[in-house]
C-alpha cells in the first residue's frame, strides 16, 4: 500500500465519521456530498476511474438533490 492510498483511506474513515456526527440534516447532506468526493478520490487512487465517475454523479448530483428536495418539503409542512 503506497502512502497516498493510506492517506486517502484514512480520509474516508474521517469523512464517514463526519457524516455520522453531523446532527443537522441539511448540513449532513452537504457533508455526505463531500464524503462522496473523498470516495471519488479513493477510487481514482485505486485506479478505478469508471467507479469514481459513478460515485461522483451519484454522490454529488442524485443523492443530495433528492434529499434536499425532501428536506425543503418537510420544512414547508412544518411551517403550516
Amino acid at each position: 500500500m503506497i502512502p497516498l492510498q493510506l492517506v486517502t483511506i484514512a480520509l474516508v474513515g474521517l469523512g464517514g465519521l463526519a457524516v455520522v456526527t453531523s446532527r443537522d440534516p441539511l448540513r449532513q447532506t452537504i457533508v455526505a456530498g463531500l464524503y462522496g468526493l473523498v470516495l471519488v478520490v479513493l477510487f481514482v487512487v485505486l485506479q478505478a476511474p469508471d467507479v469514481a465517475l459513478s460515485e461522483l454523479v451519484a454522490s454529488t448530483v442524485a443523492f443530495p438533490f433528492i434529499v434536499l428536495a425532501a428536506l425543503a418539503k418537510l420544512r414547508d409542512r412544518r411551517r403550516e
Binding site: D50, L53, S54, L56, V57, A58, T60, V61, A62
Partner: peptide
C-alpha cells in the same frame, strides 16, 4: 455516468 452528468 454521462447521462447523470447531462441531467445535472
Amino acid at each position: 455516468q454521462g447521462g447523470v452528468a447531462v441531467a445535472a
